[in-house]
Computed example of a mutant assay.
Amino acid sequence: MTDYGHDLLFGTFITPTAQPVHQAVELAVVADRAGLDLATFQDHPYLPRFHDTWTLISYAAARTEKIRLSGNVLSLPLRPPAVLARSHASLDRLTGGRIELGLGAGAFWDGIEAMGARRLTPGQSVAALGEAIKVIRAVWDDGRPGPVNVQGTYYQADGLKRGPAPAHDMSIWVGAYKPKMLRLIGRAADGVLPSLSYLSNGPADYADINKHIDDSAAENGRDPAAVRRLLNINGQFSSFGTSFLNGPAEQWAEDLAGLALEHGISAFILASDDPSAIEEFAAEVAPAVRELVAAERAG
Protein backbone atom coordinates (compact mmCIF):
# COMPACT_ATOMS: atom_id res chain seq x y z
CA MET A 1 0.00 0.00 0.00
CA THR A 2 1.15 3.54 -0.81
CA ASP A 3 -0.14 6.59 1.00
CA TYR A 4 1.71 9.87 0.58
CA GLY A 5 -0.36 11.50 3.34
CA HIS A 6 -1.76 14.37 1.30
CA ASP A 7 -5.00 16.07 2.21
CA LEU A 8 -7.81 14.84 -0.02
CA LEU A 9 -9.24 17.04 -2.77
CA PHE A 10 -12.43 16.54 -4.75
CA GLY A 11 -13.34 18.33 -7.93
CA THR A 12 -15.14 18.28 -11.22
CA PHE A 13 -13.88 18.01 -14.81
CA ILE A 14 -16.12 20.25 -16.92
CA THR A 15 -16.50 20.28 -20.69
CA PRO A 16 -15.92 23.88 -21.89
CA THR A 17 -18.85 23.67 -24.29
CA ALA A 18 -19.57 26.92 -26.13
CA GLN A 19 -23.31 26.22 -26.45
CA PRO A 20 -25.22 26.81 -24.26
CA VAL A 21 -22.87 29.70 -23.73
CA HIS A 22 -22.97 29.77 -19.90
CA GLN A 23 -23.26 26.03 -19.22
CA ALA A 24 -19.65 25.43 -18.20
CA VAL A 25 -19.60 28.48 -15.93
CA GLU A 26 -22.86 27.47 -14.26
CA LEU A 27 -21.44 24.00 -13.58
CA ALA A 28 -18.45 25.64 -11.87
CA VAL A 29 -20.89 27.63 -9.75
CA VAL A 30 -22.71 24.39 -8.86
CA ALA A 31 -19.42 22.81 -7.80
CA ASP A 32 -18.47 25.88 -5.77
CA ARG A 33 -21.79 26.01 -3.91
CA ALA A 34 -21.68 22.24 -3.33
CA GLY A 35 -18.36 22.62 -1.52
CA LEU A 36 -15.98 20.91 -3.93
CA ASP A 37 -12.32 21.89 -3.89
CA LEU A 38 -11.63 22.12 -7.62
CA ALA A 39 -13.32 23.05 -10.87
CA THR A 40 -11.23 22.05 -13.87
CA PHE A 41 -11.76 22.42 -17.61
CA GLN A 42 -10.50 20.63 -20.69
CA ASP A 43 -8.36 22.66 -23.09
CA HIS A 44 -8.73 22.15 -26.81
CA PRO A 45 -8.20 25.57 -28.42
CA TYR A 46 -8.48 24.13 -31.93
CA LEU A 47 -12.11 23.01 -31.41
CA PRO A 48 -14.64 25.79 -32.11
CA ARG A 49 -17.37 23.96 -30.19
CA PHE A 50 -15.46 24.76 -27.00
CA HIS A 51 -14.80 28.08 -25.28
CA ASP A 52 -11.21 29.19 -24.98
CA THR A 53 -10.34 27.54 -21.67
CA TRP A 54 -8.26 30.32 -20.15
CA THR A 55 -10.97 32.90 -20.89
CA LEU A 56 -13.50 30.52 -19.36
CA ILE A 57 -11.41 30.01 -16.20
CA SER A 58 -11.06 33.76 -15.79
CA TYR A 59 -14.80 34.30 -16.16
CA ALA A 60 -15.63 31.38 -13.84
CA ALA A 61 -13.22 32.75 -11.25
CA ALA A 62 -15.28 35.95 -11.11
CA ARG A 63 -18.51 33.96 -10.72
CA THR A 64 -17.27 31.69 -7.91
CA GLU A 65 -16.16 32.35 -4.35
CA LYS A 66 -14.13 29.56 -2.78
CA ILE A 67 -13.39 26.83 -5.31
CA ARG A 68 -9.97 26.52 -6.94
CA LEU A 69 -9.79 26.46 -10.75
CA SER A 70 -7.42 24.84 -13.21
CA GLY A 71 -7.02 23.72 -16.78
CA ASN A 72 -7.18 19.96 -17.18
CA VAL A 73 -4.78 20.30 -18.86
CA LEU A 74 -3.66 23.39 -20.81
CA SER A 75 -2.09 22.69 -24.20
CA LEU A 76 1.48 23.96 -23.84
CA PRO A 77 2.26 24.20 -27.59
CA LEU A 78 -0.47 26.85 -27.93
CA ARG A 79 0.26 28.71 -24.68
CA PRO A 80 3.76 30.22 -24.28
CA PRO A 81 5.23 29.47 -20.85
CA ALA A 82 6.09 33.05 -19.91
CA VAL A 83 2.51 34.08 -20.72
CA LEU A 84 1.19 31.12 -18.72
CA ALA A 85 3.30 32.17 -15.74
CA ARG A 86 2.12 35.78 -15.79
CA SER A 87 -1.54 35.04 -16.51
CA HIS A 88 -1.78 32.42 -13.77
CA ALA A 89 0.00 34.61 -11.24
CA SER A 90 -2.25 37.54 -12.05
CA LEU A 91 -5.48 35.58 -11.75
CA ASP A 92 -4.24 33.87 -8.60
CA ARG A 93 -3.60 37.24 -7.02
CA LEU A 94 -6.98 38.57 -8.13
CA THR A 95 -8.80 35.54 -6.67
CA GLY A 96 -6.88 35.33 -3.40
CA GLY A 97 -5.00 32.14 -4.30
CA ARG A 98 -7.59 30.01 -6.12
CA ILE A 99 -5.74 29.09 -9.32
CA GLU A 100 -3.60 26.04 -10.12
CA LEU A 101 -1.67 25.28 -13.30
CA GLY A 102 -2.60 22.08 -15.11
CA LEU A 103 -0.24 21.55 -18.03
CA GLY A 104 -0.02 19.11 -20.92
CA ALA A 105 2.64 18.58 -23.55
CA GLY A 106 0.11 18.48 -26.39
CA ALA A 107 -1.72 15.49 -27.82
CA PHE A 108 -3.90 16.37 -30.83
CA TRP A 109 -1.17 17.57 -33.14
CA ASP A 110 -3.25 18.02 -36.29
CA GLY A 111 -5.34 20.62 -34.49
CA ILE A 112 -2.32 22.16 -32.77
CA GLU A 113 -0.44 22.48 -36.06
CA ALA A 114 -3.54 23.93 -37.77
CA MET A 115 -3.41 26.80 -35.26
CA GLY A 116 0.15 27.62 -36.22
CA ALA A 117 2.25 25.72 -33.69
CA ARG A 118 5.11 23.42 -34.59
CA ARG A 119 4.42 19.69 -34.56
CA LEU A 120 6.69 17.89 -32.09
CA THR A 121 7.60 14.26 -31.63
CA PRO A 122 6.76 12.66 -28.26
CA GLY A 123 10.38 13.03 -27.13
CA GLN A 124 10.51 16.66 -28.22
CA SER A 125 7.27 17.46 -26.44
CA VAL A 126 8.66 16.10 -23.16
CA ALA A 127 11.80 18.19 -23.54
CA ALA A 128 9.73 21.27 -24.37
CA LEU A 129 7.58 20.76 -21.27
CA GLY A 130 10.67 20.53 -19.09
CA GLU A 131 11.95 23.82 -20.50
CA ALA A 132 8.55 25.44 -20.02
CA ILE A 133 8.44 24.49 -16.34
CA LYS A 134 11.87 26.10 -15.87
CA VAL A 135 10.62 29.34 -17.46
CA ILE A 136 7.41 29.38 -15.41
CA ARG A 137 9.13 28.77 -12.09
CA ALA A 138 11.79 31.37 -12.87
CA VAL A 139 9.15 34.01 -13.68
CA TRP A 140 7.34 33.27 -10.41
CA ASP A 141 10.59 33.47 -8.42
CA ASP A 142 10.48 37.26 -8.05
CA GLY A 143 12.68 37.24 -4.96
CA ARG A 144 15.75 36.15 -6.90
CA PRO A 145 18.01 38.90 -8.25
CA GLY A 146 18.46 39.41 -11.94
CA PRO A 147 16.28 38.56 -14.92
CA VAL A 148 15.13 35.19 -16.20
CA ASN A 149 17.57 33.54 -18.56
CA VAL A 150 16.56 30.16 -19.93
CA GLN A 151 18.20 29.09 -23.16
CA GLY A 152 16.35 26.00 -24.29
CA THR A 153 15.84 24.31 -27.62
CA TYR A 154 12.11 25.09 -27.63
CA TYR A 155 11.72 28.01 -25.22
CA GLN A 156 14.03 30.90 -24.48
CA ALA A 157 13.82 33.75 -22.02
CA ASP A 158 16.64 36.25 -22.34
CA GLY A 159 16.56 39.09 -19.84
CA LEU A 160 12.89 38.63 -18.91
CA LYS A 161 11.90 40.50 -15.78
CA ARG A 162 10.68 38.29 -12.95
CA GLY A 163 7.25 38.36 -11.34
CA PRO A 164 4.65 38.68 -10.30
CA ALA A 165 4.60 35.71 -7.96
CA PRO A 166 1.28 33.94 -7.43
CA ALA A 167 -0.65 34.67 -4.25
CA HIS A 168 0.01 31.13 -3.00
CA ASP A 169 2.47 28.33 -3.72
CA MET A 170 0.85 27.42 -7.02
CA SER A 171 1.03 23.80 -8.13
CA ILE A 172 2.06 22.61 -11.57
CA TRP A 173 0.05 19.46 -12.31
CA VAL A 174 1.02 17.60 -15.49
CA GLY A 175 -1.13 15.25 -17.52
CA ALA A 176 1.04 12.20 -18.22
CA TYR A 177 1.07 8.43 -18.74
CA LYS A 178 4.38 7.39 -20.27
CA PRO A 179 7.75 6.87 -18.55
CA LYS A 180 9.67 9.89 -19.90
CA MET A 181 6.93 12.30 -18.91
CA LEU A 182 6.48 10.65 -15.53
CA ARG A 183 10.20 10.92 -14.83
CA LEU A 184 10.01 14.63 -15.70
CA ILE A 185 7.19 15.02 -13.19
CA GLY A 186 9.27 13.27 -10.55
CA ARG A 187 12.07 15.77 -10.89
CA ALA A 188 10.25 19.00 -11.76
CA ALA A 189 6.46 19.08 -11.23
CA ASP A 190 4.06 19.12 -8.28
CA GLY A 191 1.52 16.57 -9.41
CA VAL A 192 0.50 13.99 -12.00
CA LEU A 193 -2.97 14.19 -13.54
CA PRO A 194 -4.02 11.19 -15.66
CA SER A 195 -7.55 10.09 -16.56
CA LEU A 196 -8.93 6.76 -15.40
CA SER A 197 -10.53 6.19 -18.81
CA TYR A 198 -7.07 6.30 -20.43
CA LEU A 199 -5.53 3.66 -18.13
CA SER A 200 -5.68 0.41 -20.08
CA ASN A 201 -5.68 -1.74 -16.95
CA GLY A 202 -7.71 0.65 -14.84
CA PRO A 203 -6.49 1.74 -11.38
CA ALA A 204 -3.83 -0.99 -11.38
CA ASP A 205 -1.81 1.10 -13.84
CA TYR A 206 -1.27 3.68 -11.12
CA ALA A 207 1.34 1.43 -9.51
CA ASP A 208 3.59 1.93 -12.55
CA ILE A 209 2.86 5.66 -12.62
CA ASN A 210 3.94 5.93 -9.00
CA LYS A 211 7.09 3.89 -9.52
CA HIS A 212 8.39 6.06 -12.36
CA ILE A 213 7.67 9.25 -10.42
CA ASP A 214 9.04 7.99 -7.11
CA ASP A 215 12.25 6.66 -8.64
CA SER A 216 12.85 9.90 -10.52
CA ALA A 217 12.09 12.04 -7.47
CA ALA A 218 14.52 10.05 -5.34
CA GLU A 219 17.24 10.22 -8.00
CA ASN A 220 16.86 14.00 -8.07
CA GLY A 221 16.92 14.50 -4.30
CA ARG A 222 13.18 15.05 -3.93
CA ASP A 223 10.76 13.44 -1.53
CA PRO A 224 8.31 11.41 -3.65
CA ALA A 225 5.55 12.79 -1.43
CA ALA A 226 6.25 16.23 -2.91
CA VAL A 227 4.32 15.07 -5.99
CA ARG A 228 0.54 14.93 -5.56
CA ARG A 229 -1.26 12.08 -7.34
CA LEU A 230 -4.51 13.19 -9.00
CA LEU A 231 -7.01 11.27 -11.11
CA ASN A 232 -9.82 12.23 -13.45
CA ILE A 233 -12.57 9.71 -12.79
CA ASN A 234 -15.82 8.76 -14.47
CA GLY A 235 -18.63 6.50 -13.39
CA GLN A 236 -22.34 6.14 -12.80
CA PHE A 237 -24.43 6.68 -9.70
CA SER A 238 -27.06 3.94 -9.40
CA SER A 239 -29.07 2.16 -6.73
CA PHE A 240 -27.16 -1.12 -6.96
CA GLY A 241 -23.44 -1.64 -7.34
CA THR A 242 -22.43 -3.41 -10.54
CA SER A 243 -18.77 -2.48 -11.07
CA PHE A 244 -16.03 -0.05 -10.06
CA LEU A 245 -17.54 3.47 -9.65
CA ASN A 246 -20.90 2.19 -10.80
CA GLY A 247 -23.27 2.06 -7.86
CA PRO A 248 -24.50 4.06 -4.87
CA ALA A 249 -22.48 6.78 -3.18
CA GLU A 250 -21.40 4.39 -0.41
CA GLN A 251 -19.71 2.14 -2.96
CA TRP A 252 -18.07 5.11 -4.66
CA ALA A 253 -16.63 6.14 -1.30
CA GLU A 254 -15.17 2.68 -0.68
CA ASP A 255 -13.75 2.50 -4.21
CA LEU A 256 -12.05 5.91 -3.94
CA ALA A 257 -10.79 5.34 -0.40
CA GLY A 258 -9.16 2.19 -1.69
CA LEU A 259 -7.37 4.20 -4.39
CA ALA A 260 -6.21 6.75 -1.84
CA LEU A 261 -4.78 4.14 0.52
CA GLU A 262 -3.42 1.69 -2.04
CA HIS A 263 -2.04 4.06 -4.68
CA GLY A 264 -1.70 7.35 -2.83
CA ILE A 265 -4.20 9.19 -5.02
CA SER A 266 -5.30 12.30 -3.13
CA ALA A 267 -7.37 14.27 -5.66
CA PHE A 268 -10.41 12.84 -7.40
CA ILE A 269 -11.87 14.90 -10.24
CA LEU A 270 -15.25 13.77 -11.53
CA ALA A 271 -15.74 14.06 -15.29
CA SER A 272 -19.39 15.04 -15.45
CA ASP A 273 -21.57 17.82 -16.78
CA ASP A 274 -24.57 16.63 -14.74
CA PRO A 275 -25.34 19.07 -11.89
CA SER A 276 -27.04 16.36 -9.81
CA ALA A 277 -24.02 14.05 -10.10
CA ILE A 278 -21.69 16.90 -9.10
CA GLU A 279 -23.85 17.65 -6.06
CA GLU A 280 -24.04 13.99 -5.02
CA PHE A 281 -20.29 13.62 -5.41
CA ALA A 282 -19.77 16.62 -3.14
CA ALA A 283 -22.44 15.84 -0.54
CA GLU A 284 -22.28 12.06 -0.30
CA VAL A 285 -19.00 10.74 -1.68
CA ALA A 286 -16.34 13.28 -0.65
CA PRO A 287 -17.13 13.34 3.10
CA ALA A 288 -17.37 9.55 3.22
CA VAL A 289 -14.00 9.09 1.50
CA ARG A 290 -12.39 11.55 3.90
CA GLU A 291 -13.86 9.67 6.86
CA LEU A 292 -12.70 6.27 5.62
CA VAL A 293 -9.18 7.45 4.84
CA ALA A 294 -8.85 9.36 8.13
CA ALA A 295 -9.92 6.26 10.08
CA GLU A 296 -7.41 4.06 8.27
CA ARG A 297 -4.60 6.58 8.75
CA ALA A 298 -5.41 6.91 12.44
CA GLY A 299 -5.45 3.16 12.86
Rank of each mutant, 00 (worst) to 15 (best):
E262L: 12
S238I: 07
T242K: 07
A271M: 10
A225I: 06
I233N: 10
G258I: 13
S266I: 04
A226L: 07
L230Y: 05
E254L: 12
A257T: 09
L256H: 13
L231T: 06
D273P: 06
H263E: 02
E254K: 14
G235Y: 00
N232F: 09
D223H: 13
G241T: 15
A226S: 13
P224C: 13
T242S: 12
T242V: 15
E250P: 01
E250N: 11
D273S: 15
E262H: 12
G258P: 04
A225K: 06
A271F: 02
A260R: 07
L231V: 00
G235T: 05
A267Y: 02
A226H: 10
P248D: 00
N246G: 15
P248C: 05
L256P: 00
L245M: 07
R228Q: 15
G235E: 05
W252L: 00
D274S: 07
R229L: 09
I269E: 07
A260S: 10
N246C: 10
S266Q: 04
G258V: 05
P248G: 14
L270K: 05
Q236I: 12
D274V: 13
R229E: 08
S238F: 15
A253T: 09
R229A: 01
G241L: 05
D223R: 01
S272C: 13
N234Y: 04
L231D: 13
Q251S: 07
F240V: 13
L261Q: 10
L270S: 01
W252V: 01
G264C: 10
I269D: 11
L261V: 13
H263N: 06
I233E: 09
D255Q: 10
A226M: 03
F237I: 02
L245V: 00
A249T: 00
D273N: 10
S238A: 08
F240Y: 06
Q251W: 04
A253S: 06
A226R: 04
L230V: 09
T242R: 08
G264W: 01
S272P: 05
I269Q: 05
A257D: 01
S272T: 15
L259V: 11
S238R: 01
A253Y: 15
I265P: 00
L256E: 02
Q236T: 10
L245R: 02
R228Y: 06
G264M: 00
W252D: 04
I265W: 08
W252A: 00
R229P: 11
H263G: 09
L259W: 02
D255V: 11
F240G: 04
A226I: 07
L231A: 14
F268I: 05
V227N: 00
N246F: 02
D255S: 04
S266L: 07
A249S: 12
